[in-house]
Amino acid sequence: MLQSLFMSFTDTRSRDLRTPFAVDVVGLENYAKAFSDPVFRKAMLNTAYFVVVGVPLTLLMALAAAVALDRGIRRLRGLFRLGFYTPVITSIVAVAVVWRFLLERDYGLINTALGWVGIDGPNWLGDPHWAMPGLILMASWRNFGTGMIIFLAGLQAVPWMLHEAAAIDGAGAWRRFRHITLPLLRPTMLFVSVTTGIGYLQFFEEPFVMTNGGPLNSTISMSMYTYRQFGFGNYGLAAAMSYIIFVIVAVVTAIQFRLLRENT
């Protein structure tokens, strides 16, 4: 950890591995280089897009599934829970390979399904505007199961008496959900959004397998670009970039803590 901090201030390259004392300290140059690199800036924007759209979508799907399982049905709960959780445990690489075909323009399953309801699906991964939504769709599909399980545990802690009292006072199901369940779920919500956010800020496998960052760098992520610089042997620069990711993760986590805590 400290070594990578030091390395981010040096011009370490792959050939320097044998002679660790030959590297020069270059100060903030790597950071300046990273921020002035248009591709890295593009990667930051893409990552922000992925997180800002992906986290709420994943949270919403997780919450909807959890509430439906907890309150709506009595039988087969275990089966649905198991099914919804299954994608989480599978390898992202394998899932991404499969989704690459699902999102194909002509013979992909998703556009075929859209065709049934009369929608002419886009060329998901080949179109700079649709590639990122495609990746977000896949990530939400894969990850909402974790949130669902944690929300289910959180919902168990909501005292049923409050709901009965509110129902007697004439509050409908939606109002009870908004004013009783949601506020009590706030800590759970914080937890799920923080863990999902940390994961999404580092997304890597999805573009690596599905789009290779393209088309036109529209899906390159910060982690992926860091990996690419690492692959070129620019270790100092890669370390600096990974520190930028780390600081962003820390700041975003702190902001989420603030936001979800204050409104209680």
Binding site: M1, A239, S242, Y243
Partner: peptide
């Protein structure tokens, strides 16, 4: 995050 430690 794992990204930070993997270079060193």
């Amino acid at each position: 995050p794992g990204v930070v430690t993997f270079v060193p």
